[in-house]
Design a protein around this nucleic acid. Structure first.
Lengths: 128, 128
DNA sequence: CTAACCTTTCCAGTAACTGGAAGGTCAAGA
DNA sequence: TCTTGACCTTCCAGTTACTGGAAAGGTTAG
């Protein structure tokens, strides 16, 4: 059993975040010491690491909750997991398309702008 | 002079958002009626439209505040505006790189996953 | 024993709204 | 004139996923 900062270090998360995950019941501490300190075991640390990876992939806390449920469920099917990952992939692709058209438009404006000391600016003109 | 819902319609923003922009002093209502209703003129509506465009471009409220300052300043230089736009462009490019590597990794996992009724799942394995 | 460092809970703040409640205003129709 | 419905106002709370800080208590090394 380790205390919260050891669990945080082992999972690569800030202590505050580990406490937060316990608060929202995503990865609760499996036990408390006499003094009320959270005590984490190996299994919980693995869950913290799992959640950190999933968060880095952009899964929301609620999606992490689902994934964690599947992670702990020996009877899960890979189809269930794949479906969540595919949903996330589509979100990423949608975001990419949005960013690209944004970038194209902004690039055109930046290119058209002299960027000198004069007040004439196609960017401002476009926004107006 | 028009009331808030007319200004909202003219700018394409929700009424709540127009009120919010007034609250945070981004685009204040230029006047009030006797009854306390916000009264918007043409100039303010133009500012609302300007802010909406800039927000659609992903500029933050604080960046909009700067842009609006430049928009209203006849002595601005196009260099000032261009610099803000370029900063935003770099942020977009950074986000694009992050999304791409995320997508690559997630795509590999999704491809490797059978997505069938069996519990074996490379996605879960990877996250663990 | 004390200093340093750990832990706890709770409260507030972040960005940019959004929803809702309670209550005042206004224009049109019976 | 009264009422109905669509406006408007302010204020409070909630959203996401933490993060910072305060106050108070626990633990450990010297």
């Amino acid at each position: 059993m380790m205390n919260i900062s050891a669990a945080a270090k082992a999972s690569g998360l800030p202590t505050k975040t580990v406490r937060y995950y316990a608060d929202v019941d995503l990865v609760p501490a499996p036990a408390r010491t006499e003094a009320g300190y959270r005590a984490y075991d190996e299994a919980s640390v693995r869950k913290l690491i799992f959640v950190k990876r999933a968060r880095d992939f952009g899964f929301s806390i609620e999606e992490c909750r689902s994934l964690l449920g599947l992670y702990q469920d020996d009877h899960r099917t890979s189809a269930e997991v794949k479906s969540l990952a595919q949903k996330r992939l589509e979100e990423i692709e949608q975001k990419q398309r949005e960013l690209q058209s944004l970038k194209d438009e902004l690039t055109r404006l930046v290119t058209a702008c002299n960027g000198d000391h004069r007040p004439d600016c196609p960017i401002i003109d476009y926004l107006s």
